[in-house]
Design a protein around this nucleic acid. Structure first.
Lengths: 93, 93
DNA sequence: TTAATATGGTTTATATCATAAACTAGTTTA
DNA sequence: TAAACTAGTTTATGATATAAACCATATTAA
């Protein structure tokens, strides 16, 4: 059987990656917005994706507030493509 | 955000359902074969799908040995279709 | 000026879940 | 009659997902 990438086979991480795949740098706030996730959950899942090398995280300040931005890496892009391919195969698509 | 059906968003359960969606009654042995799962894991996940009403399980004997067969229900079919639709949306497909 | 509220997150406690190992119940083979 | 096999089920555990609690600082209101 196809073995789906367990890092990507999770709803929130998949939502994040599949959003980032079509964008440049995106900030944390935007990701909360588009995913509807809680900040806590999003923070954890971003860390996991980063640790895996699927996205790059940049921390800075915007005015006085912290600003966390993410962008997908090539590794992330490849992993995503593979995941989609595997999934299609699993679903006979 | 799309909320993926958590019963179906699990690799083995998804593999089982997406196999059953194109078949009639299928026995346990065949499912072990096509999924490559352990019998224990498969047993648990079949129970879960059954409890959810996504498949019907029929127990009988083939010769002297127990025989467990599964078939997808209408509810299962609908849930699968919805899951695929949701997933496509999540993945912008 | 200080108390309350908001911003932008992170950490962590808990509950749930997935999985393989161990087990059950019987059958066949030697 | 003992060993090995069939066809599963139960369960111990480790991993995971998630929201609640927390943190550091900034802004606003009184």
């Amino acid at each position: 059987m196809v073995k789906l990438n367990p890092i990507l086979h999770q709803e929130l991480r998949l939502a994040v990656i599949s959003f980032l795949v079509n964008t440049e740098w995106v900030d944390f706030k935007k990701l909360v917005e588009v995913t509807g996730a809680t900040k806590g959950n999003l923070s954890v899942q971003i860390s996991k994706l980063q640790k895996e090398g699927y996205l790059e995280v940049k921390k800075s300040f915007k005015g006085n507030y912290p600003l966390t931005e993410c962008i997908i890496t090539e590794k992330g892009r490849t992993a995503f493509d593979t995941y989609v391919k595997d999934l299609k195969r699993l679903l006979n698509m």
